[in-house]
């Protein structure tokens, strides 16, 4: 007889802090130490986080598999579950079903230049891959991050943005729609910055995530720069429940975002019925 696919592992929140006014980061360890040591995942895979009594929702594991002291989740407060999650503190229990879904094909990106293009909390899935690549830096060519938000206070992972910019082995370009007096970076939307930088598609892969409208215009900009459909990688969001391809709701045509995604190339997306 099979195991119950809906039974979560128990985890404990070990750290929580605010990223923006409505985004909070949670660091979680599994309560079973042996299970935590044995836990393996790939960058881009997601988890179902439970607050028992409220429910479950899907979040990307935004820490990389090369840093296994904890699993990190960054969560925007938008609905019932995320409101409840935001009230949790260090020491509180949560349920975790993970790893779920597919992942970024980082093997196929070896030796290539990588362009990360993120907006808002869309940086979360990019962060897991970016940190993984920084931890195995020699395997990749130039790494560029173009990251934007509504305003400086809406940017996530702010401390790390400065750290990455100071590393010297990657390029960081930040932009906001509405700057404040202290803002020393670009102003404008992400796709415009991408176009202005004229990033070369030569031996490159573009990985993008953000609000749907940003992704749409980013893909248009990438296509203009000469990126092919196979060179553009994105992650999709969908309302999910079971996370294992059974409950039916995250289908796009015959594919399920929870098991066939969330990572898709633009070539794969073009093969699907256009219902996003």
């Amino acid at each position: 007889m099979s195991a119950n696919p809906y039974m979560p592992m128990l985890g404990t929140i070990v750290e929580t802090f605010d990223e923006t006014p409505d985004i909070k980061t949670f660091r979680v360890v599994l309560q079973d130490e042996a299970a935590m040591r044995a836990f393996r995942f790939q960058p881009g895979q997601v988890a179902q986080l439970s607050v028992f009594g409220t429910g479950e929702s899907t979040f990307v594991i935004c820490s990389p598999p090369t840093r296994m002291e904890y699993l990190q989740f960054s969560v925007m407060r938008v609905g019932e579950l995320t409101h409840r999650l935001h009230t949790l503190r260090e020491g509180d229990p949560v349920g975790i079903r993970a790893p779920l879904g597919n992942h970024f094909d980082h093997q196929a990106m070896h030796g290539k230049d990588i362009v990360f293009i993120g907006g808002g909390l869309g940086l979360a899935p990019l962060r897991t891959l970016l940190l993984y690549m920084l931890d195995t830096r020699a395997d990749y060519g130039n790494i560029t991050l173009i990251y934007g938000g509504r305003s400086p206070e809406h940017l996530c992972f702010k401390a790390e943005l400065a750290e990455w910019a100071a590393r010297g082995d990657m390029r960081v370009e930040l932009t906001v729609d509405t700057p404040d007096k202290l803002w020393a970076h670009r102003v404008g939307v992400v796709p415009a910055v991408l176009t202005e930088l004229a990033v070369s598609p030569q031996n490159a892969v573009a990985v993008t995530c953000g609000p749907p409208i940003m992704i749409r215009f980013t893909i248009m900009a990438l296509e203009k720069l000469g990126f092919t459909d196979e060179q553009i990688v994105t992650t999709l969001e969908r309302r999910m429940k079971c996370g294992v391809g059974l409950c039916g709701r995250c289908n796009i045509g015959g594919k399920f975002v929870c098991v066939d995604g969330p990572v898709f190339t633009q070539a794969q997306l073009k093969d699907l019925p256009q219902e996003f």
Partner: peptide, 17 residues
């Protein structure tokens, strides 16, 4: 048709999924 929802039904300190 086999699509389903998952919800928690709490009752005090315990409950069902």
């Amino acid at each position: 048709c086999s699509c389903f929802n998952i919800t928690d039904e709490p009752s005090g300190m315990k409950g069902k999924r």
